[in-house]
């Protein structure tokens, strides 16, 4: 079962920033890491990744460069910018807070 639309909504950019914070990467590799990390629950298409990349590049969160390719086609690599790292850390703090509140609301006990 793949329910990527619901699960990823609002978090795609942060997930991509997390992946790029571990090293420069390109579209297919990022999609593959998301799908593998999604444990079968998440499927993501290149088109979704591209739209996120484009938005994040315009916001100055990432930069791009062309690298060596495979089979005659070049790869476009993405690199997280200092602003992107700041936004990522801020997103993580927000997520932790929301996660704590939702846990209280959904599971209770605190």
């Amino acid at each position: 079962m793949a329910a990527s639309g619901d699960i990823l909504r609002g978090h795609t950019d942060t997930i991509i920033l997390r992946i790029l914070s571990e090293g420069d990467s390109y579209g297919y590799e990022v999609a593959k890491k998301i799908i593998e990390g999604g444990e079968g629950l998440i499927d993501i298409k290149d088109a979704t990744i591209y739209v996120a990349f484009k938005r994040m590049e315009e916001e100055g969160l990432i930069t791009t460069y062309w690298g060596d390719g495979v089979g005659g086609a070049r790869r476009k690599y993405y690199k997280i910018s200092p602003k992107g790292r700041e936004v990522y850390l801020s997103d993580i703090q927000t997520w932790k807070e929301i996660n704590r509140i939702l846990n209280n609301l959904l599971i209770g006990g605190n």
Binding site: Y26, G27, A31, V70, R74, K76
Partner: peptide
């Protein structure tokens, strides 16, 4: 070109 690179990868 980016799509082509992803497809080939």
């Amino acid at each position: 070109e980016e799509l082509l690179g992803n497809l080939m990868s």
